[in-house]
């Protein structure tokens, strides 16, 4: 939570803040299943992601990766199983209430508000002021402006605060969306292909960013680029046909014959 207080430079000191001070968070998924027209997209899947953990999920197309994130954030309703964030059962909460409970979701295609400026995009992501009246009377105080500027610096957009989001490059939109999520001060961050469309240099910067922001929260990343996966992952989970195939370090997973067979070998 300290990350969100808006004091200058706090975020990169974030790694030094004892995790215990930030509130505990862990995600546990129990026997989750969903099917679409008889096709089992996710099949009796159980996962546990700890505090401070950065988990990468890989797998071939149709393995159920995006569907899994959709179910965690309330976009898709599971048919069986349960999702807990600490002691809170997210399974039947509405999407916006799941967000309010501390889950941030970044979609596969960068989803920013193109008609608004970078600063405005960040501003409407600030958690306080989400009601109609609260947002009508929301005051742009010095603290708020400082908070927005700090976040823009963290996601490498501090020179572009007044730029319309629609005019940003693809990689910058990805960063902006990550910044919007961080503004929400989430306990759990779900990132669907966060480096798609980024240059190698931008990928490096993003990898650094993800390492820092996993401290004090749990992060789940879906990614295809194995080099990027190796550079960030604590643990890698491989999904195949909606089921968990292998779980382990990036090296273990890459060496596993089953993984090579269904995914990496092709």
């Amino acid at each position: 939570m300290e990350l969100m207080q808006g004091q200058q430079g706090v975020i990169f000191d974030g790694a030094n803040v004892p995790a215990a001070r930030r509130g505990h968070c862990e995600l546990s998924i129990r026997n989750l299943s969903v099917s679409f027209d008889g096709f089992k997209a996710v099949d009796d899947l159980s996962l546990h992601i700890a505090q401070d953990e950065l988990r990468v999920i890989i797998g071939p197309n149709g393995a159920g990766k995006t569907t899994l994130l959709d179910m965690i954030c309330g976009k898709t309703r599971p048919m069986a199983g349960q999702i807990f964030l600490n002691d809170l059962n997210l399974t039947n909460l509405s999407d916006f209430n799941i967000v309010r409970a501390g889950v941030g979701r970044k979609f596969q295609n960068p989803s920013v508000y193109e008609d608004l400026s970078v600063a405005e995009n960040l501003e409407i992501s600030i958690p306080r002021g989400r009601g109609a009246l609260a947002s009508l009377f929301f005051r742009r105080t010095k603290v708020v402006k400082e908070e927005i500027r700090d976040m823009a610096r963290i996601v490498f957009l501090d020179d572009l605060l007044d730029r319309r989001a629609g005019h940003l490059s693809h990689g910058q939109k990805q960063w902006l969306e990550i910044g919007m999520l961080l503004m929400q001060a989430p306990k759990l961050l779900l990132l669907d292909e966060p480096v798609a469309g980024m240059s190698p240099r931008e990928r490096e910067q993003t990898a650094e960013l993800l390492k820092v922001l996993s401290v004090g929260r749990s992060v789940v990343v879906i990614e295809h680029d194995m080099d990027f996966v190796r550079s960030i992952a604590h643990t890698v989970t491989v999904l195949h046909q909606g089921r968990l195939l292998v779980e382990g370090s990036a090296d273990e997973v890459q060496a596993d014959p089953r993984v090579i067979d269904v995914y990496l070998g092709h």
Binding site: D95, F96, F107, S111, L116, R130, A132, S135
Partner: peptide, 26 residues
């Protein structure tokens, strides 16, 4: 106001606004 920006955001991307934690129907 910020509400004005939220309303524009809803016009352009209502789904996304729910994932910014807003009850867009309200």
């Amino acid at each position: 106001s910020r509400l004005g920006n939220v309303v524009i955001a809803i016009r352009d991307r209502e789904d996304r606004v729910r994932f910014s934690g807003y009850n867009t129907a309200a």
